[in-house]
């Protein structure tokens, strides 16, 4: 029974990660649908607003700080789209991807320049209270992160399904020209996608920074599992991103508790890589379907 109890404890302890990954994966999916771009700057789009929230907490208090950081995240997303991704569209997806790499580099360098590279413990929006789970503790902020993420994901799924804006975004993701012919401005829906993605990344970053640490590089890399989650979900699928995040979050949490090989450094990454490759092997046909169709 000890093993099962450990497993349960680990699952519970992983919930904040699931929440963060969900928010990041949703943003990655929005951006992929909006621009057909893999946004490698997503980690930096979470990290930079987290620093902004940290810097403003002293001046404006934690709530105002977080809200401003959220807005800043949205603006950041918009400007990356305007300055880099849109202008690089004629040069092709590889150039666009490298454009987001450049954004990643610049944001990390700026953060390191302004706030330094020593890890900082950021004070969270929620009171510093925690609950004992097994031998560890789960902070209130962590629990909040999970539930906020689930609520946000549900909200976005509803938005896509039931609102005009959602419909417009879905159809311009499918076919920009056809959407334009129906009177939808695809540039606008793309901008909205980046705005949402930026704000979500900021929210995830601010909440995650409270339960881990603030560091320009490390915090940016926290987003990597979310790429796996988005890929597992199908990269275009909003609800898929949610399921993918749950799978990825629990894998990251559970693998070390399996002991033995699982305890080694990098074991979660290896597990995630295998997970991703298995899912790709299974769904491959569906991933590849578009090209075949257009050829016939």
């Amino acid at each position: 029974m000890g093993f099962l109890r450990d497993l349960f404890v680990n699952v519970v302890l992983t919930t904040p990660l699931v929440g963060a990954y969900t928010m990041f994966a949703l943003g990655i999916v929005f951006i992929y649908r909006g621009s057909r771009v893999l946004n490698l700057a997503h980690g930096a789009m979470a990290m930079f607003p987290a620093y902004i929230a940290y810097a403003l907490t002293g001046v404006a208090g934690p709530y105002a700080g977080a809200l401003i950081a959220l807005a800043a995240g949205g603006v950041l997303g918009l400007s990356i789209e305007r300055v880099l991704v849109r202008r690089l569209r004629p040069a092709g997806p590889t150039a666009q991807t490298v454009g987001t790499v450049a954004a990643l580099g610049i944001l990390i360098a700026l953060a390191a320049r302004i706030w330094g590279t020593t890890p900082i413990h950021a004070k969270g929006v929620f009171p510093d209270k925690s609950f004992a789970v097994g031998n560890s503790a789960l902070s209130l902020g962590g629990i909040a992160l999970f539930f906020i993420a689930i609520a946000v994901a549900g909200g976005f799924i509803a938005l896509f399904r039931y609102t005009d804006l959602g419909l417009a975004m879905r159809c311009s993701a499918d076919n920009r020209r056809a959407a334009a012919l129906m009177g939808i401005d695809p540039e606008r829906t793309t901008a909205v996608a980046w705005l949402f993605a930026g704000a979500l990344a900021a929210l995830g970053g601010v909440l995650l920074a409270a339960s881990t640490n603030l560091h320009p590089y490390t915090l940016s890399l926290q987003v990597l599992p979310a790429f796996v989650a988005a890929l597992i979900g199908g990269l275009e699928n909003v609800s898929g991103a949610l399921y993918g995040s749950i799978l990825v979050g629990f894998t990251v949490g559970i693998v070390p508790s399996l002991g033995g090989i699982g305890k080694q450094t990098g074991a979660p990454q290896v597990a995630l890589a295998f997970l991703a490759f298995i899912v790709m092997g299974m769904r491959g046909g569906r991933f590849a379907a578009t090209d075949v169709r257009s050829g016939l």
């Binding site: 997806p93 080694q264 450094t265 490759f277």
Partner: peptide, 28 residues
């Protein structure tokens, strides 16, 4: 992997591979 997936899906797969090599292989 590239026989199964294309484009940016493949890009993510290679990203995951690099990340795994970075976090596990090059530390073992």
């Amino acid at each position: 992997v590239a026989l199964r997936v294309r484009g940016l899906y493949l890009a993510v797969a290679t990203l995951i591979f690099a990340w795994m090599a970075d976090a596990y292989l090059f530390l073992s």
